[in-house]
Design a protein around this nucleic acid. Structure first.
Length: 930
RNA sequence: GGGAGUUUAGCUCAGCUGGUUCAGAGCAUCUGCCUUACAAGCAGAGGGUCACUGGUUCGAACCCAGUAACUCCCACCA
């Protein structure tokens, strides 16, 4: 059996965290091995993660109540209540958890408020679909019946996503979990609606809205996705109404005109709406159509007369230069209609079918009608031609239905007044966007903001507190009773008005009308604006979210913060990228290119996945996710586990003196240096870089160098001082790793290696180490020593000398570096039998240069003079070139005059170093020739 | 149509006010190793005309102009 087979076998017999075989085995050497090695060979996360998450919960480490400490607050971007965890959530919540855990370990009172969003359109669509499966149609239900089903659905599926977050390790204060339709949050929505209405910021009006015929609701501009679609452009001929006067002039002009004067041809992508036409519009400057000024035309098929109007809005060189105006079904046409006082003829039902106004094709769906009308027009001889045409079409984000511009009575919230301060907060830096490239986009949007359509024709959500009187007047009030009182106060009130005569507006408010209050409402800041929580936690610190919702969520939260608290809702907005697959495609359910996050956790551990996500996530840039990052994360966890295993296996001998003072001094300095780098990275929200710095510190500096330096020979004891220092280092490493890898670090934290721990002495609440002293001389020296060791190893490799074979190494020191004090390290890591300083060159030995010092390995039989000469010549050539460019600079008067003194000094040092090295090279070349 | 961004090694990305061995890191690749912490590993190595073309400067991956490709946001051309 080879080693890997052995390992597999071992894993089979060892359950998670099991150190003994589950059943007796015949492999006696396995049993022997197990007795010797009582620690699992690889880190086994499953049980560990469950264990520590419940431990944290049990000891309420996530829980936060106001106290004298500085608060650190994040409110979660509430995921859709019926949603399931996807990669975007993984990224987003990993980042939040890293920030929260780090804040906690810096002594702050960290509070991460979780919750879910009722997501009216998405949830209602799901409930409708669920009912349909059960054979129930929404039409047949009363509003309360439907809502009962919806709540049932919410209760059943509402918690799933939060449970999934726990698997990731999210350290939210679950006692604070909120839902945007919780009683107090809904009340806040209604109260703010009334407040804004009274302030004149909410109004009701007929507007062209984005109508989703499938969801049967209006959606906001932000929820419309524009896509380029292949369409047809239909050229349709309208007959010009001939009156007597024009008939005469026409008779005279007819043979001169290239265009028929009896007909006018328009181009449209929507022939099914011709029945709603209110006019034909031409550009007044269009000479081709002068004869149409003041005329009327017949709509084909239905022969209704409509006027020809003139407006410069029409582009002469597009289509035929002649536009049909359909105010009810096109935003531009609507505005044109308003300008020219045209009637509005709406021929569509809410579900996108044609209504009676259309006169023909009544009841047909708009797309079916389009095809059919083309045939009818063709038959009537009114269809001139059909061309292929590409254009942008709006689709509903939620249902993917083609958006229908539709006139309807809607509620609006005025934005202009609120946008101003919200823009200023970002421009003057009170709120930082990370990365700041989003400031421009934010400004552009805020300066061109349009009023917010806040009504939705749905049942799931907060019902608009508008009450209609039988005569059509309305009042805004919290309840029927209050509405009745208000109604009685109206000037032209109806006699004998009874409360039951009032009908409440059936619409609900847009989901974002509750989410924009989130940072305030989760702390009950509306009901009780002066409570201890809101005073302590608000404004929150960081908001972590996707740039896609910068406008309809982030911007509006800022507005609400200003409007209702006179303060920003948060200080920093960290905008994550979009998670894409390797091919750069956005991960989505429909493409099926998104891995299930829970499967990933199962496979690579939560720590591994967290690390994997962060490896590839620079702020604001999209990330090309690949499972291999998680694999790397898992491998990292395993590496740490093995370092632990090594240290754990040591025995201490108190009689031994500390033989590793240099190594300890070096790693201590290196650790502090890295700590500073990590701190700086976090200060700039460069999370992947902070992680990478940690990764390298642990893997390279600690494992590959430090542990190798101090590690005692097999089965040899270690001295107490080295052991203590190493355990201390390892504990500090666990601390800086904890925000990234909470489970593994907590598991190791409690090992007896670190002595007895009190019950609440946990890594999660440990305080991060402060940056201590940095000995930069030792740091610099060690870089040289490492280079020497690498050179020796390289020589071994190229000369095919086994690492087991010890080599002699001598050095001719020119630089003055104190190699003697590093001798134990060089000897150990280079496997050197004897390290001797020499006064003269060693002939016939393999040599290399570090700094300006010459190193020799006496292996004359391995020296190939030809190859050696070639190598030296090549190096010499490079150095001469380098020296030449340095000299060119130094001889350049303008460089000497303009460059900063420290730059010149550096160049001078480069020159002397290069010259010294060249001298050595030349000497070596001469020696080779002898 | 308007605006923003990106382009550096096979991949994902650093590179701060132009000036250290300024061309870097991780992964991947290649070579050699089952060296009792770790093959989910160890040691070593090889990868780049910094998108292209000009300009400014003593000096440019970095600043300026233009070009190309890609991405995103905004917008009413039927």
């Amino acid at each position: 059996m080879d080693k890997s087979g052995f390992n597999n076998c071992l894993n089979q017999f060892c359950g998670p965290q099991q150190h003994e075989p589950k059943k007796p085995c015949n492999y006696s050497y396995i049993c022997l091995f197990l007795r010797v090695m009582s620690i699992a060979k690889t880190y086994l996360p499953q049980e560990t993660e469950k264990k520590w998450y419940s431990y944290w919960l049990k000891h309420e480490f996530f829980k936060s109540v106001p106290d004298e400490r500085e608060p650190y607050t994040i409110v979660i971007p509430p995921p859709n209540v019926t949603g399931v965890l996807h990669m975007g959530h993984m990224l987003n919540n990993t980042i939040q958890d890293v920030l929260v855990r780090r804040a906690r370990m810096k002594g702050k009172n960290a509070c991460w408020v979780p919750g879910t969003d009722h997501a009216s359109i998405a949830t209602e669509a799901k409930v409708v679909a669920m009912l349909k499966e059960r054979g129930i149609s929404k039409k047949d239900l009363t509003r309360p019946e439907f809502l009962a089903y919806a709540w049932e659905w919410k209760e059943k599926y509402g918690g799933i996503i939060l449970e999934q977050l726990k698997k990731l390790g999210a350290s939210c204060d679950w006692d604070r979990t909120r839902f945007t339709m919780d009683e107090s949050l809904s009340e806040a929505v209604i109260d703010t609606f009334i407040h804004l209405y009274k302030k004149g910021l909410i109004y009701r009006g007929i507007r062209m809205v984005n109508w989703d015929p499938q969801g049967k609701t209006a959606v906001s501009d932000e929820e419309v996705i524009r896509k380029e679609v292949n369409q047809k452009l239909y050229y349709i001929r309208y007959e010009v109404v001939v009156d007597e006067l024009s008939a005469m002039s026409e008779a005279r002009a007819t043979h001169h005109s290239p265009l028929s004067t009896h007909y006018v041809t328009i181009a449209t992508t929507r022939p099914e709406t011709i029945m709603a036409d209110a006019a034909i519009c031409i550009n007044p400057n269009d000479e081709r159509y002068l004869h149409l000024h003041g005329k009327k035309v017949f709509i084909p098929l239905i022969n209704r007369e409509i006027p020809v109007i003139l407006d410069e809005y029409v582009t002469m060189d597009f289509g035929t230069g002649c536009l049909k105006v359909t105010p009810a079904h096109d935003l531009n046409d609507y505005e044109l209609g308003q300008k020219h006082h045209l009637p509005v003829i709406d021929i569509l039902n809410d579900d996108g079918t044609l209504n009676k106004e259309a006169q023909i094709l009544v009841g047909e769906d708009r797309f079916a009608a389009r095809k059919k009308i083309a045939v009818l027009l063709e038959e009537a001889g009114a269809l001139v031609k059909v061309e292929d045409y590409k254009s942008q079409i709006g689709f509903s984000e939620r249902t993917d239905a083609v958006i229908e511009p539709k006139l309807s009575m809607q509620w609006f919230c005025k934005m202009g007044e609120m946008a101003k301060p919200a823009l200023d907060y970002v421009l003057n830096g009170e709120i930082k966007l990370i990365p700041d490239k989003f400031i421009n986009t934010y400004r552009h949007w805020m300066e061109n903001v349009r009023d917010w359509n806040i009504s939705r024709q749905l049942w799931w959500g907060q019902q608009i507190p508008a009450w209609y009187l039988p005569d059509g007047q309305f009042v805004i009030a919290k309840s029927r009773e209050e509405a009745f009182e208000e109604a009685k106060a109206l000037k032209s009130q109806i006699s004998n008005l009874k409360p039951e005569d009032l009908t409440q507006d059936p619409d609900v408010v847009d989901t974002w009308f509750s989410s924009w209050l989130w940072p305030i409402s989760v702390f009950d800041g509306f009901k009780d604006p002066n409570n201890a929580d809101i005073n302590y936690y608000y404004p929150t610190n960081d908001l972590v979210t996707a740039p896609e919702i910068l406008f309809f969520w982030v911007a509006r939260m800022i507005m609400a913060g200003h409007e209702f608290r006179g303060e920003v809702p948060f200080r920093n907005v960290y905008l994550t990228g979009i998670v894409r697959d390797k091919l750069g495609r956005k991960m989505s359910k429909s493409l099926g290119n998104s891995p299930d996050p829970l499967d990933l956790i199962e496979k690579y551990s939560a720590d591994g996945v967290r690390v994997g996500m962060l490896f590839c996530s620079p702020a604001g840039n999209d990330l090309m996710f690949d499972e291999s990052y998680c694999e790397q994360g898992r491998n990292f966890a395993n590496k740490i586990w093995n370092a632990f295993k090594l240290i754990k296996g040591w025995e201490i001998d108190d009689n031994l003196a500390n033989s590793n003072t240099i190594a300890i001094e070096w790693f201590g300095s290196r650790f502090n240096e890295a700590l500073g780098d990590i701190e700086a990275d976090f200060a700039q929200y460069r999370l992947s870089e902070a992680l990478m710095a940690t990764y390298k510190l642990v893997w390279d500096d600690f494992c590959a160098w430090y542990l190798e330096m101090i590690k005692p020979a097999y089965q040899q004891p270690v001295d107490r001082a080295t052991y203590t220092a190493t355990v201390q280092f390892f504990e500090n490493i666990l601390k800086i790793l904890h925000p990234f890898m909470p489970f593994l670090t907590e598991e190791l934290w409690h090992d007896e290696l670190f002595g007895e721990r009190a019950e609440k002495d946990c890594c999660i609440v440990a305080q991060l180490p402060n940056i201590g002293e940095i000995n930069s001389r030792i740091l610099n020296d060690l870089e040289i020593i490492k280079a020497v060791i690498t050179q020796v190893r390289n020589i071994r490799n190229t000369k095919q000398i086994s690492p087991k074979e010890a080599l002699e190494l001598s050095v001719k020191i020119n630089s003055g570096l104190q190699y003697q004090q590093y001798e134990p390290i060089i000897v150990k890591l280079g496997n050197i039998s004897r390290f001797t300083p020499v006064a003269d060159k060693v002939n016939g030995a393999i040599n290399f240069i570090a700094l300006t010092d010459e190193f020799y390995i006496p292996l004359s039989e391995n020296v190939d003079p030809v190859a050696e000469r070639a190598r030296l010549e090549k190096e010499k050539e490079y150095l001469s070139g380098f020296l030449k460019s340095v000299n060119a600079k130094l001889n350049n008067e303008r460089f000497m005059a303009n460059a900063k003194p420290e730059i010149i000094e550096i160049e001078l040092k480069k020159k002397t170093d290069a010259e010294a090295k060249l001298t050595i090279l030349e000497e070596n070349l001469t020696a080779l020739a002898d």
